[in-house]
Amino acid sequence: MRTVIFRSIAPYLTSLMVLFSVFVLLRGHNEPGGGFIGGLIAASALAIYGIACGVAPVRRAIYFHPMAIAAFGLFMAAMAGVLSVFAGVPYMSGLWIYPQIFGAEVALSSVLVFDVGVYLVVVGAISSIALALEERDRD
């Protein structure tokens, strides 16, 4: 698969897909999208990069081990629920704050934290499997 065309287009494609995955993640609260589907898009972006340029550059690019990324996502998702302790409501309740950023009201919630956690779990777990399979392929 290491053709010139694919190799030159892959980095742009990958960055575009990762950007799009973040868009899908943030869009997910009120419209179709969310952490799971966003994570799948990001994982496929990494897989494409891996197919085009080899697994080692991907591992260098994401810096952390994919499993550690997944673990951090799990930690974040569980912590998003723990925030409810301080509000005196049951575990996993949605909590909202509405800070003014540059004059516009931005709604931030513990649900978003949870969703980012899911995103990271999916990115980590799927790309861990994908990278392992791509590595085996070359043996």
Partner: peptide
Amino acid sequence: ILLGAILLMLRK
């Protein structure tokens, strides 16, 4: 779950 996640990050 929290400790499982932390230990997974400390896997190595």
